[in-house]
Design a binder for these strands. Structure first.
Lengths: 229, 229
DNA sequence: GTGCACTGTGACACTTTTATTAAAACGATT
DNA sequence: AATCGTTTTAATAAAAGTGTCACAGTGCAC
């Protein structure tokens, strides 16, 4: 899950430094020197977070922050403001303008990363976390656990994801490739047949009460999760 | 559920004003003019939040804030600092001293109330005072104690908070980052792996009667407190 | 029934993640 | 400043999970 951060900062060296630090931590970076460029670049790759310098030529950071919070499509992108020490007033105005957090320059890379992650966590809350159950096989996303008739089962992360996918997409055949895309993630290079092995492991893991019968092989097509025999 | 706020402010008119504003919003108010009186009054009705003026005769506000954060029983009470405009440096020191937020005088009543509520929201989930028990492992928030089958256990403060968090949020996986957010606090920047060490110490501390089995590793996801094996 | 193409399985070399330990850093106390 | 208890970091060991392969089964078409 690679996240994209838009860095809006006029001073090239600082921008470079930010880019380095953030990429080091696995973020994708889009850069913008000023208000206008930021406006342009914001639309297309749609960043997960914006790092915004308070001091910008051609339109202040606050101005940008405000305009972001106005538009529907950008309203929900979290913003972290970069302010120089001593511009305390600005911080307050920045927060008023809709910034989610601020970091004082000079900052430690560690703090920056931590704040970015914290803000992202706050903003990206719940996907579908409801437990799913079929024939006594229950998967609880919240506790990250699978139970067969109330009895907890043990399986690896990949098997869990695989089962999760199957249970959320039952009664439908998926080719090995499709499974790789959906469970492993796109652009992952693994052998098709690897799926077989994980299917095997998953079946083994849920076999105690015979739930492995729901993981069905469809010869020549792939696999299917189905409650019907 | 009426919340109590301790107002520590030396200037009577401002204190009156604060009292008025806060009571208007449904809070209970305890007043204190200075450091010493605050120290006295803090114990008994146990406020839900402290509103603390930076400028106090007989001991500065920061001093009080620090001493509050030192003592176990008052450590978890959130503090909002009141600072005069222009004391920018103080704000920073105030936050360092452990204040949860600050408000600049003069402030709008609306802003003050909003910040108080925000801070309380952040902090509240932790403040359940009922003892919790799972499988003979009992945690008593009030006495700040953990017992395994009536036998008191020994652990450090962080382990206690960690266990407290786990026991109030059982059957749920938490990533290291989430644990740091919830147990250490939002603006603390430590390595993810630090959690491992505390998990280890916590497990060790509660292992005498095998309760460590409830602290479960969920590979690739984090840790979970669960009564099920 | 035979052969062919597809799937199942166990083993293994390799990665990634977690546990454990020891040492450094920190903070409060004296 | 020295000390004690705790937290954090860093280093290393241990464990768990992964992807591939070779070969064993299976089912299907003929």
């Amino acid at each position: 899950m690679s996240r994209t951060v838009l860095v809006v900062e006029d001073e090239a060296p600082i921008r470079e430094m930010l880019k380095f630090v953030l990429e080091q931590s696995g973020f994708n970076i889009i850069e913008a020197e000023d208000y206008d460029i930021a406006q342009e670049k914001i639309c297309e790759p749609y960043p997960d977070l914006i790092l915004l310098d308070w001091m910008l030529p051609g339109g202040s950071g606050v101005q940008l922050a405000k305009s972001l919070k106005q538009h529907e499509f950008t309203r929900d992108i979290p913003v972290i403001m970069l302010t120089a020490r001593g511009e305390e007033e600005d911080k307050i105005r920045g927060l008023d303008a809709g910034a989610d957090d601020y970091v004082t320059k000079p900052f430690s890379p560690k703090e920056l990363i931590a704040r970015i992650k914290a803000v992202m966590r706050r903003v990206t809350p719940t996907s579908n976390e409801e437990p799913i159950e079929f024939n006594g096989l229950k998967l609880e996303p919240v506790s990250h656990r699978v139970m067969a008739n109330e009895e907890p089962l043990d399986m690896g992360p990949t098997e869990f994801k695989l089962l999760h996918f199957f249970m959320t997409h039952p009664e439908r055949v998926y080719s090995r490739e499709l499974l790789l895309d959906n469970v492993w993630g796109t652009n992952v290079y693994v052998e098709d047949r690897t799926v077989d092995v994980h299917i095997r492991r998953l079946r083994k893991a849920i076999s105690r009460h015979g739930h492995d019968a729901m993981i069905q092989t469809v010869r020549g097509a792939g696999y299917r999760f189905s409650t019907k025999l």
